[in-house]
């Protein structure tokens, strides 16, 4: 596969390490009353879509960026790639 790195252009997927669902960015509030349940769901419950899937890839042999890659699990078509820290900020993780 080829991942179109937002800064470096198309790079071979061999250079990346896959982590999993981009929902791992949405780490729950550890101080909330339901923290134990929230973390359990966060860590163990995943959607497994046949279709578009946002997932985390690490450009380990490149610039060490974590990327959020939107990939169709049926065709491997990649429709969108962005830097994970920008995605995370958009989801309020820098607050």
């Amino acid at each position: 596969m080829i991942i179109n790195h937002p800064l470096l252009g198309p790079r071979d997927a061999q250079e990346f390490v896959y982590l999993g669902d981009a929902s791992l960015i949405d780490r729950p509030d550890a101080s909330g009353e339901t923290a134990l349940d929230d973390f359990h769901d966060y860590l163990y419950l995943r959607d497994n879509p046949a279709g578009s899937h946002k997932e985390l890839w690490f450009h380990e042999q490149g610039d060490r960026s974590w990327l959020v890659v939107t990939r169709d699990t049926r065709t491997h078509e990649i429709t969108h790639v962005e830097l994970a820290f920008e995605y995370a900020k958009r989801r309020g993780r820098d607050k």
Binding site: L24, I25, R27, E60, W66, F85, A88, R93, K95
Partner: peptide, 17 residues
């Protein structure tokens, strides 16, 4: 290697601020 990867995950994805 995996620890560095994990720390970058924490830095970029969990606490980018």
């Amino acid at each position: 290697v995996p620890v560095f990867r994990h720390m970058e995950f924490c830095r970029q994805c969990l606490w980018p601020g």
